[in-house]
Design a protein around this nucleic acid. Structure first.
Length: 270
DNA sequence: ATTAATGTTCAGAA
DNA sequence: TTTCTGAACATTAA
């Protein structure tokens, strides 16, 4: 999302923020919409970045809008899948191909928050967002996994343990790592942590290059409403009952951990 | 009618 | 103190 919007919005002024009218319950916006809109009007978007799974727009003066897309939220520059689920619009000035940046969200579970200068460091980074998955090292995995008896799959989804890994990617990462998702995190051997570290970087970096995964429900789309391409490379996610592409022996199983689906190959992952 | 879906957070219990 | 479960949030599609 960040890579998709950054080239088109960084450096441009926010002329106005508009709440889109819809028949659905409004999404969570803090502070109140009109306060947020007034504080952002006239500011320039100086930086477009990411904090775990959150999108961060830092504006002139140092305040930052943090968008948390959750299950079905999208940051879009054009061509929304439908207009019913548009939630918020940033009307942009300056030169640029696209006049608006949109937050579109079908389920409406996403949130938008405005942070005062320095507040992200004091609040988000200390309490809810852990070290970034793409910055992790074997040593960092040791301290994050060694301290918990939870299943490794559950630990990977804990955003304060490691930030940035979602449900689909947790299954893919553990399959590439050849680790059973039900294994206790604190019982993983050094060789396994090393494979985990490699797999996290390989899976996430390739998924980013491929612009994410568009599943059959077409929930995730790029900033220009295109399909991602990484779904073509899924080896376990959504493939329960199919033969494992890696060992060609066992069939992929689906189990539930922490109320989320986990897919894995009982042959490859022990 | 029921269930599950790339997520987070809270309350209450083990 | 940590971990687990269930629920809540809201909508759609199989």
């Amino acid at each position: 999302m960040v890579r998709g919007i950054r080239p088109f919005v960084a450096g441009r002024p926010i002329e106005r923020v508009v709440r889109c009218r819809s028949r659905y319950k409004p999404i969570s916006i803090r502070p109140r919409f009109d306060v947020l809109a007034k504080r952002l009007a006239g500011r320039t978007i100086e930086e477009v970045s990411r904090l775990g799974k959150r999108v961060v727009l830092t504006v002139s003066g140092g305040s930052a809008v943090v968008i948390e897309p959750r299950m079905t939220g999208l940051m879009l520059l054009s061509d929304p899948p439908d207009s019913d689920h548009l939630r918020l619009e940033w009307r942009l000035g300056g030169k640029g191909k696209y006049p608006s940046l949109w937050f579109w969200d079908r389920r409406g579970l996403g949130t938008v928050r405005l942070f005062a200068p320095g507040e992200i460091e004091r609040d988000l980074k200390t309490s809810t967002v852990g070290p970034d998955a793409l910055e992790m090292t074997v040593e960092a995995w040791r301290s994050c996994c060694g301290a918990t008896s939870r299943a490794i799959k559950v630990a990977l989804l804990d955003q304060r343990a490691v930030a940035g890994i979602g449900n689909l990617y947790a299954s893919e990462i553990l399959h590439l790592s050849k680790i059973d998702p039900t294994r206790r995190a604190d019982r993983l051997k050094p060789a396994e942590l090393s494979r985990l570290n490699d797999a996290v970087h390989r899976v996430l970096e390739e998924a980013i290059r491929d612009e994410g995964s568009t599943l059959s429900d077409e929930t995730y789309r790029t900033a220009l409403n295109q399909n991602g391409k990484y779904q073509n490379k899924h080896r376990v996610y959504g493939r329960a009952g199919e033969v494992c592409l890696t060992c060609s022996k066992a069939t992929i199983r689906r189990i539930v951990q922490a109320q989320r689906s986990t897919f894995f190959c009982p042959e490859c992952q022990r």
